[in-house]
């Protein structure tokens, strides 16, 4: 097809981001990600959705290179990324969740934003001030504030500083890990608008990690839904919100509070999110799934094609496909 460039591809990215807890005791292995594949095309915005503990942040951190995968590999434009590949490392940047914790409180804004491009010799130290001023304008901050410290800024301004810092090394790909979750609604709208404007202006690609389906629906072209370390569904945004295929996606969409629903009768999805230390056998969602069968308990469903650009991991759909 037309699009052939592969972008941050991680095939069979897998199995174990083993976090070893405690010394001396038998190691507890958390399967934060279990054979996850994620492909992002150039210029695309992919929304990664899931509840806490589903591995979405871990996947984001692996994509940036903050964690090494226990197995599987990361590819950038078709080539496996070597550990010392500096240009690729600069091309993929991350924006962190907490605008309070992710800025060094003892550095001035000019240094927070300007340190990395100077260290990587993208600009001469003498040009730092002009470069930072330009970046601050791009993200909607007053450049005269660059001598200030992070505590002198509000939450929305700090989010903008985090974005300017990520943009300073001229990345092509941004991983935004819950970048707007800590902000108030009116500020969140301002920052989301900034993301949309920057994408158009700089041709950026985003991996947008969020638990907020409204935000993801608004900003992404494609949505990937994760549950307990596995991808359960991936599809173009409109398709997912129009006709979700996986029972978990259906439940998730039904639970999202909406402005147009009044005095709704809430129906509870039964059960809780199981611990990733002892995930259920077979399909991870089966203890909470209304359609679960014997097969779901025994066998993990593979991701199967369910339409153009759409995959889903559910036995219901593989059964339907075999029958037809």
């Amino acid at each position: 097809m037309g699009i052939s460039k592969r972008f941050a591809k991680s095939p069979d990215l897998a199995a174990r981001i083993a976090l070893k807890l405690g010394a001396g005791t038998p190691p507890v292995v958390v399967h934060a990600l279990d054979r996850v594949n994620l492909r992002v095309m150039q210029g695309e915005v992919v929304g990664l959705v899931g509840e806490s503990g589903c591995g979405k942040s871990t996947l984001g951190r692996v994509a940036v290179g903050l964690h090494a995968p226990s197995s599987g590999d990361r590819r950038w434009k078709g080539n496996v990324i070597a550990p010392d590949d500096l240009p690729t490392r600069l091309a993929i940047q991350m924006i962190f969740q907490d605008p309070y914790a992710s800025l060094n409180p003892r550095l001035r804004i000019a240094d927070i934003i300007g340190e990395a491009p100077v260290a990587h010799k993208l600009i001469a130290p003498a040009d730092q001030e002009a470069y930072v001023a330009d970046l601050m304008q791009q993200v909607g901050l007053d450049a005269t504030l660059m001598r200030r410290f992070p505590h002198q800024f509000s939450g929305g301004q700090r989010a903008r500083i985090g974005i300017a810092r990520a943009l300073a090394v001229k990345p092509e790909f941004l991983v935004c890990d819950e970048a707007v979750a800590a902000l108030d609604v009116s500020i969140q709208a301002q920052v989301l608008n900034l993301f949309i404007a920057l994408r158009e202006k700089l041709g950026l690609t985003y991996l947008f990690i969020s638990h907020d389906l409204g935000v993801v629906q608004h900003i992404s072209d494609r949505v990937v839904i994760m549950y307990l370390g596995r991808v359960v569904e991936s599809a173009p945004t409109e398709e997912v919100f129009r006709a979700p295929l996986h029972p978990y996606t259906q439940a998730l969409l039904a639970e999202v509070p909406r402005l147009d629903q009044r005095r709704k009768d809430f129906v509870a999805i039964k059960g809780e999110i199981p611990s990733p230390i002892h995930p259920p056998s077979g399909c991870h969602f089966h203890p909470r799934c209304p359609h679960a069968t014997e097969r779901c308990r025994a066998e993990a469903p593979p991701l199967i094609e369910a339409g153009p650009g759409r995959v889903v991991a559910c036995h219901l759909h593989s059964a339907a496909q075999n029958a037809s």
């Binding site: 969140q188 709208a189 409204g214 608004h218 900003i219």
Partner: peptide, 24 residues
Amino acid sequence: RGLMCSVPACNPRGQPLKQIPGMT
């Protein structure tokens, strides 16, 4: 009204959100 309009679900997808300028 501004608050209602800044909720992403009330805006067409991919379009800029209607935002309230400034801060509290």
